[in-house]
Amino acid sequence: MLAKGWKKKGCCSLTRERNCLQGQCCHGAPLSEQIRTGRVRVCKVTGDRKVCARMASMGLYPGVEADVICPERGSRCLLKVNGGTISLDPEVSQNILVTCL
C-alpha cells in the first residue's frame, strides 16, 4: 500500500521548491560564509553524491530549516537540524547554500 496521504498536506519541500530550482532562483550563500548564528533555510546541497545522500539521511537536505550554532567564516560549522547537532567541515559547508530567515 502506498502511504500517499501525507502528500496532500504539501510536506514535500522538493515539490514545493521544484519551480524555484528550475528557475535557478536559489539566492543563498554558502554556509561556510555564514558569520552569524541564527536560523537558516537550506536551499541547495551540492558536491559529492554520497556525501549529499549521507547528509540527507542525517536530515540536511534542500528545504529544511536549521540553526547555525558555531559559524567560522571559511571554516567548519556546527548546525542544529531536526533536533540533532551536525558538524560540517569547510568543503561540505561550502557546498550547502542557505538563506537567512
Binding site: 502511504a3 501525507w6 502528500k7 510536506c11 514535500c12 519541500s13 522538493l14 521544484r18 530550482l21 528550475q22 541547495k44 546541497v45 553524491r49 549529499c52 545522500a53 540527507a56 539521511s57 536530515g59 537536505y61 534542500p62 528545504g63 529544511v64
Partner: peptide, 16 residues
Amino acid sequence: LDVYPEAIIADHRYGY
C-alpha cells in the same frame, strides 16, 4: 531538479 534521486527519496521520507 538539479538533485540526485536519493535526495528526492530522502525528502519524501522526511515528508512522510
